[in-house]
Design a protein around this nucleic acid. Structure first.
Length: 577
DNA sequence: GCCGTTTTCGGCCCGACTGTTTTCAGTCG
């Protein structure tokens, strides 16, 4: 039993109590308890075992007893009894957008629906539309939401699989029969979501390495295992391939399996013009009389085709091949260029870690400064700060900074952009901050023109340093709201507003496809983790990869600047930045 | 179920939107 499992049990209890129509405040207490378990300091499992949870806010007598039982026995009788009342599959129903506990209960009581499969059948037979409180539109919305879930079912967010991939690479690297290892595919190209993973090894013992690959702890089941390829399904449900090639084939296989398909098609046609035939095994002269060139690394392939080396992130056939032919590829930003970051939360609003803990982690990462921007009052559900609490936080920040020997904390706010483009705080309040992120958190259903004008209005404010998560999308969960990106970028350029690359794994927003345009208009990017806990600051690494995918250079990214440079930047009138 | 310079009951900070209704319930941030 670990922290996550304990929190999961409380969360599931909350769902089941909701289904039973229990007192909503009791439900909330369990949900809050789950949050507390995840966020609290110390070894919560050990504390629960020793009955030492007294005094923790959000955990009262009842939850303390239940957590104790969980920690000591690994089970919970209360939960087991509750689970007996519903089949396990009801939890699926909570994943459907637009369905809450009341509707699920109604579906369960009236139609016996207790799984997505049964729900789909009931919708298709028209049984859902005639239930009280439901209707044709609701039935259609449920079907659409289920279709969307299916569409996303086999995809994963880039930032959520980084640790898994790094772990597997490390293990493969240690294999005695393996000389080279890489991950290819859309993961290597830093797409914001990936469907499957492609690992590549150079070895003389393909069958052995494939066999050993299928026994990795991350593997759930084996689909196929041969001499050059193994296919498995991982514990997290991901499809994953390993390809074993000879060392001499490795660069070609790496290039080929990295893709994208469009990039490779363009590259092969370029090769043909030069009298070569390129495939995943080699680069061969079309004229059989000539000898194939010596290739040791992927770089050599590009060089032989008369191209600059094209970084994997750029390989989408969006102009990179032409630029490489003219020696005009940008030198892309790197993680080591980052000096600090903005847009982070603390326990003052919905963050899990205190100001001190966040700062400590930023220092640990080798940064020179950290921007704090908790939610504003309209985001009350996230514990948004009102004017009084905000100004108090600014004071706390100034006080803490004095004790840090040079590390800078920039005091800011993630201020809500209200429906009409007004901001949640007055200019007088905003003027007292070092910086300000403006974000949309509600009323997502405006038409494109209205939404664009709303956001532009916020950017026109002198005190708004940067625009937060511009499209509002939640990857694999919620589509972006309609937005005229070209106008947003023009407005950012005109008002000298920075645009954020929010590198929370859920967001990666603004989308990488727009960054080159923004860069060319002189718009600065700020790579921000939107961290709600200290460990989320580590998402900066993935953020940099996505910035690279957007063709961004060091000079295009605000937070590659040093603390004194940032200070000067923020003090400058916006128009002169 | 939690919490309390209103200590053992009575609150638990909202507002927009949708689709169902005919004045409102359910869902979502």
């Amino acid at each position: 039993m670990n922290r996550e499992e304990m929190a999961d049990v409380l969360e599931k209890i909350a769902l089941l109590l909701e289904l039973k129509g229990e007192n909503p405040f009791k439900v909330r207490a369990y949900r809050q308890g789950a949050e507390t378990v995840l966020a609290m300091e110390g070894d919560v499992v050990e504390l629960a075992k020793n009955d030492e949870l007294k005094g923790i806010k959000g955990i009262g007598d009842a939850l303390r007893d239940k957590l104790g039982e969980l920690a000591k026995t690994g089970g919970l009788e209360f939960y087991e009894n509750l689970k007996k009342e519903f089949p396990e599959s009801v939890f699926e129903l909570f994943e459907i957008q637009g369905l809450g506990p009341k509707k699920i209960k109604s579906l369960y009581d009236e139609l016996g629906v207790d799984s997505t499969a049964k729900l789909k059948a009931a919708c298709e037979e028209g049984k859902v539309a005639v239930l009280p409180g439901f209707g044709e539109k609701t039935q259609k919305k449920i079907l659409d939401a289920m279709a969307a879930n299916e569409k996303f079912a086999d995809r994963f967010r880039l930032g959520s699989v980084t640790a898994l991939v790094e772990g597997m690479l490390e293990t493969l690297r240690l294999h005695p029969e393996v000389s080279r290892v890489a991950v290819a595919g859309s993961y290597r190209r830093a797409r914001e979501t990936v469907g499957d993973l492609d690992f590549l090894v150079a070895t003389k013992e393909g069958a052995l390495v494939c066999e050993d690959f299928t026994t990795l702890p991350q593997v759930e089941s084996v689909i196929a295992c041969g001499e050059t390829k193994a296919s498995v399904r991982l514990q997290n449900g991901m499809h994953c391939d390993l390809r074993a090639v000879k060392n001499s084939e490795f660069p070609f296989a790496l290039q080929y399996f990295t893709g994208s398909k469009e990039h490779n098609v363009a590259l092969r046609s370029l090769a043909l013009k030069k009298g070569w035939s390129l495939n995943e095994y080699g680069l061969n002269p079309v004229d059989p009389g000539e000898t194939p060139p010596y290739v040791e690394e992927e770089k050599d392939i590009y060089r032989l085709l008369g191209l600059q080396y094209i970084e994997p992130e750029l390989r989408e056939n969006r102009g990179e091949i032409e630029a490489a032919a003219e020696n005009k590829l940008p030198r892309l930003v790197e993680l080591m260029n980052l000096r600090g970051t903005f847009h982070n939360h603390t326990t003052a609003s919905d963050g899990k870690d205190t100001l001190e803990a966040m700062v400590e982690e930023a220092m640990e990462l080798g940064l020179q400064y950290l921007g704090i921007s908790d939610h504003s009052k309209s985001s009350w559900y996230a514990g948004g700060l009102d004017e009084e609490r905000l100004l108090k936080q600014v004071e706390e920040i100034r006080d803490l900074e004095k004790m840090l020997g040079g590390f800078r904390i920039f005091a800011g706010s993630e201020v809500d952009i209200l429906k009409d483009g007004d901001l949640d705080f007055s200019d007088e309040i905003l003027a007292q901050l070092d910086f300000c992120v403006a974000s949309v958190h509600n009323v997502f259903n405006l038409d494109e023109d209205t939404m664009t004008r709303r956001i532009c209005r916020a950017m026109e404010n002198e005190h708004i340093t940067m625009l937060g998560h511009s499209t509002g999308r939640l990857l694999l969960k919620r589509e972006a709201y309609p937005l005229d990106h070209a106008r947003i970028i023009d407005c950012a350029a005109a008002t000298r507003t920075v645009i954020e690359l929010n590198c929370s794994p859920m967001r990666m927003d603004m989308d990488w496809r727009w960054w080159k345009r923004a860069r060319d208009k002189g718009v600065l990017c700020s790579i921000n983790p939107d961290a709600h806990s200290r460990d989320q600051l580590h998402n900066l690494g993935t953020g940099v990869r996505v910035a690279r995918k957007g063709w961004l250079r060091r000079e295009d990214v605000l937070n590659t600047r040093t603390a004194p440079e940032i200070e000067a930047f923020l003090k400058m009138p916006k128009a002169k930045r």
